[in-house]
Design a binder for these strands. Sequence first.
DNA 1: TATTGTTATACTCTATAACTATA
DNA 2: TATAGTTATAGAGTATAACAATA
Lengths: 164, 164
Amino acid sequence: MSRARRALAPSPDTPVPPAVEADLRVDLGPLPNLVGYAMRRTQVAVFADFIATLSELGLRPAQFSALLLIDRNPGRKQSEIAEALGIQRPNFVAMMDEMDRRGLTRRLTSETDRRSYVLELTEAGRTLLERAVELVSEHEARITRDLSRDEVDLLLGLLARIAN
Amino acid sequence: MSRARRALAPSPDTPVPPAVEADLRVDLGPLPNLVGYAMRRTQVAVFADFIATLSELGLRPAQFSALLLIDRNPGRKQSEIAEALGIQRPNFVAMMDEMDRRGLTRRLTSETDRRSYVLELTEAGRTLLERAVELVSEHEARITRDLSRDEVDLLLGLLARIAN
DNA sequence: TATTGTTATACTCTATAACTATA
DNA sequence: TATAGTTATAGAGTATAACAATA
């Protein structure tokens, strides 16, 4: 009998759809009105496109952002790059191993602290990153194609004010 | 030498911060201006709060949305609920097993098709869902506390226009 | 003592192939 | 022949404890 009480969102109370369609679509209830749910669903779709975009270069999202940060932050330690990306240090090791093996990055033993590595891109790494940046730029244009520049800025601003 | 070319975002060209701080923060480059990156970072933070919110009921996010859909869609098959949630059918089985075991849901063999199950909530399931809906409502208010009602609607609208 | 990179490990989420029983 | 639920399995991503080398 009783549906769980609507403690959520001032329901827009969508009018009951015509009988034919009524049985086809599953009622998502308040889910579409939840910021968390909407953001997750959208993010999953965007991420899928992002992964597909980079896959032609054999890069995964975390690798792309790692290359970007290494390029922009010469002299930084492995642990600093990892932390900035929100990646646990242990999990960053295998990622660096693979990128080293592919000849995209190099780990130089620091001259001031022999415990740590200084990361840098190889020439191949820089070339690949440039191509990746182009592809990501296209991806960005693709996912925001229905939004104006102002709307994109608005979205970025709103996202920055969530969950802080 | 050459940083990877800025094919991305009309950089707001943040003025170089004072020398003291310059070394502390890792330069994220164009990442913060990428909708995908911003959305992922925000979503991770929101999801962490969501998981913590439901953990006191022993529910995980997918279980919450499953309970919600079962409650709202009496007579639906297991596979229909799973698909509406974007969960692979095989992965939904263990979830239903656990919720059945906890006495939150029941699987009734369909009278019209003996291959399929009709899902329903038990009284305990409905009670737990009601409490969960309250907690999620508080979570929603918490993550959007810096936004007006109009801004939340604006955000939902913008998200809906991404990656479709 | 504390930190850096590392190894080992475990847990969750997700994805696919293949089985069974029904249709 | 196709579909619903299931099993088994594999791959990401993520998290923590603990060790060796160094500070």
